[in-house]
């Protein structure tokens, strides 16, 4: 078990999205989530780092980054939701799926996952109105044709952290 001592958000994310990982490594994913919760500006820094990884030309790195993003949405609470709910971050996701930006160079798997995440957040976080604006814009542009089917285990149901800490 690696300990968080001396680890930064960037080092956790590099480990969690390492293209050499044979499968998603939840120790690092949860380590990243925990680090966000520890740092004053954790969510702001984290979304910037995540946007960069999600735009990786390496599909596996981008897919892992999207899994990390999904985990953060479940485990990092309102502070993180607020950052994701800003156009500054949403625009980075839009770039991934839009042919006007990176869309032509991004795999279908990554684009599908981005659209699924956006749609699931429009349902789970109606108070984050910019997420809806972004999603509806993608529909108007014909980038999203119909709402995706979200598997039951992928909906954003707020859950208690997997490793509750005793103060």
């Amino acid at each position: 078990m690696a300990e968080a001592e001396g680890e930064s958000l960037e080092s956790w994310l590099n480990k969690a999205t390492n293209p050499c990982n044979r499968q998603e490594d939840w120790e690092y994913i949860i380590g990243f989530c925990d680090q966000i919760n520890k740092e004053l500006e954790g969510p702001q820094i984290a979304v910037r780092l995540l946007a960069h990884k999600i735009q990786s030309p390496q599909e596996w790195e981008a897919v892992q980054a999207l899994t990390v993003l999904e985990a953060c949405m479940k485990n990092c609470g309102r502070r993180f939701h607020n950052e994701v709910g800003k156009f500054r971050f949403l625009n980075e996701l839009i770039k991934v799926v839009s042919p006007k930006y990176l869309g032509d160079r991004v795999s279908e798997k990554v684009k599908t996952k981005v659209i699924e995440l956006l749609y699931s957040w429009t349902l789970a976080l109606p108070e984050e109105s910019k997420i809806k604006d972004a999603y509806h814009m993608l529909k108007r542009q014909g980038i999203v044709h119909s709402d995706p089917q979200i598997p039951a285990d992928r909906t954003l149901i707020p859950s208690p952290p997997p490793r509750p800490k005793n103060p």
Partner: peptide
């Protein structure tokens, strides 16, 4: 004030 100006600067990507 900072938050207000951040809100003003937060725009959807032009398509």
């Amino acid at each position: 004030l900072g938050e207000e100006s951040e809100e003003r600067d937060d725009h959807l990507l032009p398509m």
